[in-house]
Write a protein that binds this DNA or RNA. Structure first.
Lengths: 95, 95
DNA sequence: TAAATATTTAAACGAATGTCTAAATATTTA
DNA sequence: TAAATATTTAGACATTCGTTTAAATATTTA
């Protein structure tokens, strides 16, 4: 959980996730989207993978990345408690 | 947006948010929940406030904190793109 | 008004983070 | 097999982050 939220925290990593909504891509194509060195992107991809937000599949000399449902499910589950709160707010404590 | 994700990134701050699902509380009561100094909690509360995840209302010498819908709406909106990608079941409640 | 209570602000500091360049690993192609 | 391509790993470095103690601000109570 900790590592998943951490992965989502960085703006570049969030952009990578949004980019992958368009479909799976190899590391080079992902890196092209950003004005940042390939090693930096590689590092971000590693963190996203650790957070179960993306999957990596080796295909020849390429590594193809795609969104991973598992990390998003975790975040979604955490959010449910708040969704319920805003629908059924508990009375606030008066001090 | 950046500051909202940053606010959610820290585990103590997420615990504070979950604690506030139980209802609004003043800073002292919130601090009691954690084995951490009051200034640290105060700092966390400030970041949560900056991220529009909580509201602060001064009541005499106390400051009462409560969940703020606005920050959660922002994160939820970001999340929607992925929910659609994975076809998550739609919540009855629209955040 | 003085003391007690509630909370924040300030300053300091080690740990974690994001970035870079250079080097290493793996695969494909000539 | 050697060169080219794709990607990661390693090491370094400045910045940001989370924490603490001490001091400041605001409010209530005696």
């Amino acid at each position: 959980m900790e590592i998943t939220f951490k992965a989502i925290n960085d703006p570049t990593r969030r952009e990578i996730l949004v980019f992958l909504i368009g479909g799976a891509q190899n590391a080079g194509e992902i890196a092209k989207q950003f004005s940042m060195s390939k090693p930096s992107i590689s590092h971000h991809l590693d963190l996203l993978k650790q957070g179960n937000l993306i999957l990596a599949e080796k295909k020849g000399q390429y590594i193809i990345y795609s969104l991973n449902r598992s990390g998003f499910e975790l975040v979604h589950a955490w959010f449910q408690g708040f969704a319920q709160y805003f629908e059924f707010p508990k009375p606030k404590i008066r001090l």
